[in-house]
Design a binder for these strands. Structure first.
Lengths: 161, 161
DNA sequence: TATTGTTATACTCTATAACTATA
DNA sequence: TATAGTTATAGAGTATAACAATA
């Protein structure tokens, strides 16, 4: 089924707007907190959850395990997180945010929020925001429920080893 | 002004969904056409416009000039575009898509469209799509009209040299 | 055997600054 | 002086495969 013309326009506007927003946010995080977007997301998740295993931390960040190890290494070297073996499962590593890490998140959060408010929400009514949230929540849940073919391929390839 | 709770949820759903979609699209473009998303976007713009200067090509792709030169170098080496000096303005470089480049775009387009249809649009009604398009078009135009502070800083820095 | 995580490695991408040439 | 584009270079991010250790 080909895309209808209005679908194409919707897709382009969506991609372009999110790219512009992410680009602006990356500049802000780098300037005010010396953090990449992914590092901020990891810290924000930890600030919310307190302590997570590497696998839990990777969930939702769409990341290879080695990539997460790399980023965790940077954050640990910067003193923003600590890693320790889990007592429950000795294969697992528990990641904890440090006071410095919390301080860093709090430092960049106002600027982050200000940009998102100004760029994304300022031209929207409350009803727009609610509709957008409803639509994108449905889309996200749909995507999470039906993984792309690449994941299926990977699972099949792994299964047939 | 802090974000209202429902704004935060909207922002997260939006970011996460677009990230998942882009990740899937990148896998598909790489697998079926050996192209990065940016290379595909550049080729698609050229397929539509036929011939563009480097500056025109950069518009909308949010890219440093050197980054565009790098990507154009890759595409030219792959035989998908050609570059030639402009007769009108000898500083400018005109970029043209080759028959091979067009063929490459056409090769990956069906898979691309299929993924976007399945991941983004399949859980949406026509009205959802229209609303999403309307909202994101407004947001995108707003972002384009009011550039982020970093651009202002750059202009001011340049002006005061 | 499967899972958790790390390491080694190679590659891609991106940004900055310096540079050339034209307007 | 400003603009179009390239180059050199350095750093960051990413992915794959091989690996060790535990479940």
């Amino acid at each position: 089924m080909p895309l209808a013309p209005h679908q194409l326009g919707t897709y382009f506007a969506l991609s372009e707007a999110v790219n512009l927003l992410q680009h602006a946010v990356e500049q802000q995080l780098r300037a005010e907190g010396d953090l990449s977007l992914i590092q901020f997301e990891l810290l924000a998740r930890l600030a919310d959850a307190g302590r997570l295993s590497m696998t839990e931390l990777a969930d939702g960040v769409v990341y290879s395990r080695s990539g997460l190890t790399y980023q965790a290494g940077l954050l640990e070297k910067a003193g923003l997180i600590t890693r320790e073996p889990s007592p429950d499962d000795e294969r697992a590593t528990l990641v904890t945010i440090t006071p410095d890490g919390l301080e860093r998140v709090q430092r960049v959060l106002p600027g982050h929020v200000e940009i998102v408010s100004r760029m994304l929400f300022s031209p929207l009514t409350e009803q727009d925001t609610a509709e957008l949230g409803d639509i994108m929540t449905r889309v996200r849940d749909h995507m999470r429920a039906s993984p792309p073919r690449s994941s299926i391929r990977k699972r099949k390839a792994r299964d047939s080893r």
